[in-house]
Computed example of a mutant assay.
Amino acid sequence: METVKLSSKGQIVIPKNIRDNLHLPPGTEFVISMTATGLTLTPTTLFPRVTAREVRGFLAKRGRQIPDDVDIKASIKARLKAQDDASK
């Protein structure tokens, strides 16, 4: 564990060994979130968002129909609702 200081400009420096271990190049953008115990820094994705249509067929199996974006979103929504209902 390392200790860092907040500068007068509200900046912190991520120690070099941590940057190297996590492969964080200069210019990496982060999402910062407040948690119950403090702050969490999460690097934003290195890969651009794509739609199912753009990667259609990438992992396709013969004879299997590839769902479209609407079907995928509906499936995700149904699974999240089922998980939410199960946790109540």
Rank of each mutant, 00 (worst) to 15 (best):
R64Q: 14
T40C: 00
K77E: 15
F47Q: 14
D71L: 14
P15I: 05
Q65P: 09
T3W: 05
L59S: 10
N21V: 02
D69Y: 02
I12T: 08
H23I: 11
I12C: 03
R19M: 08
A74T: 13
S87A: 12
Q83G: 14
Q11N: 05
R49N: 08
I12W: 04
A86K: 10
V4Q: 03
D69G: 03
L46C: 04
H23G: 07
A36R: 11
R19H: 02
R56Q: 15
T51A: 00
P15R: 09
I14H: 06
I18F: 12
S33L: 13
R56S: 15
R53S: 12
V55R: 10
M1E: 10
A74F: 05
I72S: 02
A36S: 12
P15Q: 05
L6A: 07
T35S: 09
L41I: 06
T44P: 07
K73Q: 15
R62T: 13
S87P: 04
G10N: 01
P15N: 11
N21F: 03
T42S: 11
K73D: 15
T40F: 10
D85I: 01
V70C: 05
L6W: 01
L59G: 12
S75I: 03
S7K: 01
T37C: 00
E29R: 14
T28N: 04
R79V: 08
K16S: 08
P26W: 04
V70M: 01
P67V: 07
F30A: 01
L24T: 04
L41N: 05
D71F: 10
